[in-house]
Design a protein around this nucleic acid. Structure first.
Length: 444
RNA sequence: CGGGGCGUGGCGCAGUCUGGUAGCGCAUUCGCUUUGGGAGCGAAGGGUCGCAAGUUCGAAUCUUGCCGCCCCGACCA
């Protein structure tokens, strides 16, 4: 992409209504534009990152055996009356009537609808297990939206629903998502810690929140420090095998959010391993048994011929919130520092002197070569001054920058700058392209 | 939902207390000079001062009502 043809409205000054760094940087880097409280347009740069995150989430769901579908944003009130939640949900649910005065709502979540879909087609235990998911916009009319996309009213969520014959089988589905989430967040460059969460009226130990540690997190969390450094299981996990040991390894160590915190248990963690911090909830998984299948009559016939309600779980990832979380985890005073897996462009090319023939020729050649190599470059071919170009490149946080100027070109050299460390390496344009190409392919 | 704050060119702000022809910086457009970390000089364009009613000879400024947005707390992907 050529910057001169792109749509990248960067701001030099920080808008006054943004409090936390991720919100400030998203506005400054021209990623989002607020349209109302908690409602945002996704400008081209932000949209690119959002789609990359969405794709990684999708790939890991698929790998874990979940099946993608797509349900509508608008739902019928009648469906929610079946589960009893139409009245329970309260003011957070945006209620709408159509021209025929039919009662509709903008979906805050999809348990009812997926249960309705399941029961329409699945009648036998032989249809189980099943895991279905979609990635769709949700609306929750929050009392107080804040922090940009971290707590928007409209947000993009990946929600998976599992259907199993009994609790034991449901636990296996739960474990699949548990492991899939660890891998997902790891690919996104995040250290997410699973923490015991409130299971509500169902009880048991089958609910976890996945928390990214960050200063600006909304919740107070307590955990064993080893959990933060514990790597993800890895993409070669056999999801059909026994995942329980992987889960146990992580749930054995203390980790809890404020509402589940047990100070006496936490005290048993070695002093130098006790970590209390703030965190951002990026995922939440739970098993809820027959809470919806029973009232909504999602029954399957067992081997003995008796119909029984299926055991369900649901598993959510806040896709749009993840953008904020990633920036909170990866930034410096100059701007964003994207992990390569989600960077809006793979590399930036900075032509220091547009109009200078040597610079133009070298920049065009590098651009063509990087496009050819599949590195998705953003070529700054504008006639801005060097300082402004550097500032923009650092702000939008591409992992690499290739700097092409008259000074270096005299010796046939360009600079390859690594955004994360700030270090620069002089080399020939050809070397820069091949080095970048190797890195990119290694990453995939 | 309780408490606090803010709405003035695209962005950041001053002016409001004490009513009298709407200003600054950045950005934008044009010209010249510049050109390796957000350039300099000169010129130009752009604002129903959130909306409505009221007080007044006169309202960004005072009064009332409404709307919007932000922050702090209780709840949530």
């Amino acid at each position: 992409m050529r910057l001169s043809r792109y749509f990248l409205p960067v701001l030099k000054e920080t808008p006054s209504d943004a409090e936390i760094v991720s919100h400030q940087l998203m506005l400054r880097a021209g990623m989002i534009k607020q349209q109302a409280a908690g409602i945002y347009s996704w400008l081209p740069l932000g949209h690119r990152v959002l789609k990359k995150i969405e794709q990684i989430v999708r790939e890991e769901q698929d790998r874990a055996g979940a099946i993608e579908l797509l349900m509508p944003t608008i739902q019928s009130a009648d469906l929610w009356r079946e589960s009893g939640r139409y009245d329970d949900y309260g003011d957070e649910m945006l209620r709408i009537t159509d021209r025929h005065d039919r009662e509709l709502l903008f979906g805050p979540t999809n348990e009812e609808m997926i249960t309705e879909i399941f029961r329409s087609y699945c009648k036998s235990y032989k249809d189980l297990p099943k895991m279905l998911y979609h990635i769709q916009w949700k609306f929750r009319d929050e009392r107080r939206p804040r922090f940009g996309v971290m707590r928007g009213r409209e947000f993009l969520m990946k929600d998976t629903y599992s259907f199993d014959v009994d609790e034991e089988a449901a636990r296996r589905s739960y474990n699949r998502m548990f492991v899939a989430y660890l891998n997902t967040f790891s690919r996104l460059g995040l250290k997410a810690v699973p923490m015991k969460a409130d299971t509500g009226p169902i009880g048991g130990d089958l609910s976890h929140e996945f928390i990214v540690l960050a200063e600006t997190g909304e919740s107070e969390v307590f955990c064993h420090a080893d959990l933060v450094e514990m790597g993800a299981p890895g993409l070669d996990v056999d999801f059909d095998g026994d995942l329980q040991p992987l889960v146990d390894q992580r749930t054995a160590l203390y980790a809890a959010t404020e509402e589940m915190h047990q100070p006496d248990e936490f005290a048993a963690v070695p002093k130098d391993r006790q970590l209390s911090a703030r965190g951002i909830e990026v995922g939440h998984i739970f098993y809820f048994g027959t809470k919806y299948s029973e009232p909504m009559k999602a029954l399957v016939q067992h081997q003995d011929g008796q119909p029984r309600p299926v055991h369900m779980g649901s598993y959510g990832v806040g896709v749009s919130r993840l953008l904020g979380a990633i920036i909170e985890a990866h930034h410096d005073e100059k701007g964003c520092i994207w992990p390569e897996s989600v960077a809006p462009f793979g590399v930036g090319i900075i032509n220091m002197r547009v109009g200078d023939e040597a610079c133009d020729v070298a920049s065009e050649a590098a651009y063509a070569a990087l496009v050819e190599a599949g590195l998705d470059p953003l070529y700054d071919d504008t006639d801005n001054r060097a300082g402004a170009k550097f500032a923009t490149a650092d702000l939008i946080g591409l992992p690499y920058q290739i700097v092409i100027g008259p000074r270096g070109l005299k010796e046939g050299k360009i600079e390859l700058k690594v955004r994360r460390t700030g270090e620069t390496h002089e080399m020939s344009p050809e070397d820069a392209v091949s080095r970048l190409a190797e890195r990119a392919f290694a990453d995939d």
